[in-house]
Structures are given as structure tokens and as C-alpha cells.
Design a protein around this nucleic acid. Structure first.
Ligand SMILES: [Mn+2]
Ligand SMILES: [Mn+2]
Ligand SMILES: [Zn+2]
Ligand SMILES: [Zn+2]
Lengths: 166, 166
DNA sequence: CGGCAACTGAGACTCAGTCTCAACCGCAAA
DNA sequence: TTTGCGGTTGAGACTGAGTCTCAGTTGCCG
């Protein structure tokens, strides 16, 4: 998929324009991110890189993620867990998330009625919104069919790909 | 306000019924929580206790908060920061939060239309919701009037009462 | 060639939260 | 009254995610 390369190019442009350098580590990271993941966390990414070939330090992973966010190619999101996740920024815009607490699946949605209603609420409260953050936790269709039960709602623990701890 | 004592009693009942003990530490904590705070975090509470008279360890604060959550008197919530907050559970039920990223004010709201729309979305996606989590970040009326600008939306840092670091 | 700015990995550090452990009640049976 | 025994506590070790520092590396430009 040449999509990946388009992202590499866009990131390189961003870097150059900032006086920064398109290093092999940065390129490897963005390639990994845009060829596979969609919602992922830093540790997952670090693990994937280790799996591949490339040895990249935690520091560089975090530093590159920060750059990717600044460049607008990637967004940092909360998914109801106690660490951050990241997602691709597709041309389309804001969306919220349904998160399955059994299998970890993430379903995106954008609903204009919901957005509109939020704006109304803010107006009523004389509140100037800049940003919002909605996760609906529950059980996805597949897991429900299998009769899986969700975890306790206030102690959600999502299932991730196995990770290599430091 | 005898409200506080009603909560103390309810918590004691819960403890006894669980074979646990209404110790002075636990009572002091619940008194502090229900006489002052509404949304607060563990560190804030620890600090307040220090300010008062009582010396209570961090471990006990966290342990007691867990018990309070189990007892149903207190709820653990996300407010868009990277640590938990807690709030009183008033007889009324679920609500969401507007959080001012300038002054840290928290405005609660419950909107049935919003809730209904979320249920509709889940239905459409064949998703069984158990819980959701919505924070709208922005600037409250007071701060807007003062012309305060919000922080970058993805790096929110709320203002808290000064805290005594460990 | 030398300088210089950006870059990197290792690992120290932070912060919130959890866990362990030894000392400490307070009550009830012996 | 002594002993035993759960439950409780504080100190501090530990964890996990994330940040920061620093010394060594790289690549470019004069
Ligand atoms: Mn998403
Ligand atoms: Mn609230
Ligand atoms: Zn699922
Ligand atoms: Zn405000």
C-alpha cells in the first residue's frame, strides 16, 4: 500500500520544515504505525519494533510520537484505560469510541446529533468547549454472541497484544 | 451540617457488615470528604488531612477510598487528567462533567437526550454499553469573562489546591 | 578538516497508585 | 489476666507509564 509512503513523505516534509531530520528511526516508526496499527499504545509500538528488526529506545518512541502528534498525522486519545493510546488522523475529523471491555475492540463513530446536543448543553451552562472526550465501554457484538461477560465497569482492563516488558 | 454524620453512619454500617472496623482514621477521612470536597483527588485529600491535625498514611487514604467506593458513598471518575478523581454519590444518579481547563472548575450535568442518543448509537452498532465517560473540556463563564485562555487541549493541566508532595 | 546542531540510547527520575511487612490494636476464649 | 487472632496501620519498597538528562553519534556546512 502506497498509503504508508504518503504518510512518510508528509512526516518528512513536516520535519524538514521544522529544521528536524527524517532519521531512520523516525521513518521506521511511522512506517510501522501506518502499515498496521490504528489504535495503539507506546508499549505496543515498542514491542512491534523489537519484533521487526529495528532496535529503538523507549525515549525515541515517545519523542517520535510527540512529533507525529504535532505534525497532525497522529492523535493521542483516551480509551478508558490508564495510559494513552494513539490513532491515525484520517482526513475525516473528530469521532468518539465504543470500547469492548472483553476483547479490546475499538469501534469509532461520529454522530452529529450527539455533537449538537453537547454544544447546546455548553451554551445553556455558558461554557465554551474546546474539546471533548467520550468513551462508551461495554461488550461488542462478537463478544456478546460468545456470551462473554464484561469486567467490572470501574476497573476496566483491556486485552492487548502480548508485550515485552522493559 | 448533620449530613456529614449521616455519611459517617452509613459507612460504619457498611464496615461492620463487612467485618471491618470503623477506625478513627477512616472516620476522619470520610468526615473530611463529606464536609468539604465534592470532586477531589487522593493527594488533595492527603494534604487536607495533614493540614487538619490527623496524620494518615498514603496507603490508608487509598485503602479507605477503595472502601468508600465499594460502599457506594463515593465514585471514582475521570476528569480528563492523568489521575483519578473522586466525587460524592448523591442520591441522584449518573452525570457527566464540564471541566474548565483554566480554573479547574467542574460543572456537572445530566442530559437525558444525550443519554438516549448514546443508547441509539450503541444499538445501531450492536454494542451493549455498560458504562460511559464524557468530559467536555473548555472555559467556564467566569474565566471567559476574565479573558483567560485555555491550555492546549491535549495537554490539559488543571489548577489544584497547593499540594504537599511526599 | 572542524564545528555544530540535531539525534540517539541508556538509564535516572517522577508521579500515581499498589503492595508488603512488621508493629499494633481490641476483643474474646482459655 | 494472659493469650491468640483477625483486622489496621505506616513506612517504605515497588510498579508502570511517561519524562528528562547526559554523554556519545551523526551528518551537514563552512
Ligand atoms: Mn479512534
Ligand atoms: Mn461529578
Ligand atoms: Zn469484544
Ligand atoms: Zn474556569
Amino acid at each position: 500500500m502506497p498509503q504508508v509512503e504518503r504518510h512518510v513523505t508528509k512526516f518528512n516534509d513536516f520535519l524538514l520544515q521544522q529544521g528536524l531530520k527524517p532519521t531512520s528511526e523516525r521513518t521506521a516508526l511511522i512506517r510501522e504505525i501506518f502499515s498496521t496499527h490504528y489504535h495503539f499504545d507506546a508499549d505496543e509500538l515498542l514491542f512491534k519494533m523489537k519484533q521487526n528488526e529495528v532496535k529503538i529506545s523507549r525515549a525515541t518512541v515517545y519523542r517520535t510520537l510527540e512529533l507525529l502528534v504535532k505534525s497532525g498525522l497522529v492523535r493521542r486519545v483516551h480509551l478508558g484505560e490508564d495510559h494513552y493510546h494513539y490513532e491515525h488522523v484520517s482526513g475525516d475529523s473528530h469521532h468518539d469510541h465504543l470500547v469492548c471491555t472483553v476483547c479490546g475492540a475499538v469501534i469509532e463513530f461520529h454522530d452529529e446529533e450527539l455533537e449538537r446536543r453537547q454544544r447546546e448543553i455548553c451554551e445553556k451552562k455558558k461554557f465554551t468547549p474546546t474539546f471533548h472526550n467520550l468513551q462508551i465501554l461495554g461488550v461488542c457484538d462478537a463478544c456478546r454472541r460468545k456470551g462473554q461477560l464484561p469486567d467490572a465497569p470501574d476497573r476496566v482492563r483491556m486485552i492487548h497484544a502480548t508485550k515485552l516488558r522493559r
